[in-house]
Amino acid sequence: MLKIVRNKKRQNSSEHSSGDQKHSHNNEHGLLPVRLYVGIFIVLLMMIFMNIGISMLPIPSIWIVSLLIFVAIIQTILVAVFYMELIHEDKFYSFVFGSAVLFMLLFFGITLGEIRGRDFFTATEGVKMMRGVDQNGNFAPGGPKLEKKSEGSH
């Protein structure tokens, strides 16, 4: 015990600055037990089978997709917290990764919200959107040439 304390003291005295001491504290975290890694693996495995089960449920598609994404998010959190060891890393790493998640959600929200807005304008303002045309494949970039397309081009 005394030896450990002495080693630690020597280690601290060799640090050049208080900033380094902070880094040292952040990076020299303990090891997670192997049993925990295996436990997380089993939970993640069960979640894969849970997702397969959800896909076979006789419920509307929107609920299936929502449930699948919900389970996937929990799986992601488990991987990030335990396998990527965010549980005992510097909280700044979580902030960096979390801010990317935040911008991703903003990106999804704005982009996918805009599509819903198109339907709103189509219904209320009578604005003709490309979607109706697109269903025929006419405006699909690089798509196969349909008969309608060749007619339209003349």
């Binding site: 896909s55 598609s61 299936i64 699948l68 996937a72």
Partner: peptide
Amino acid sequence: FLYPLLYLA
């Protein structure tokens, strides 16, 4: 995320 969205949803 790819697995549920491409194969299961």
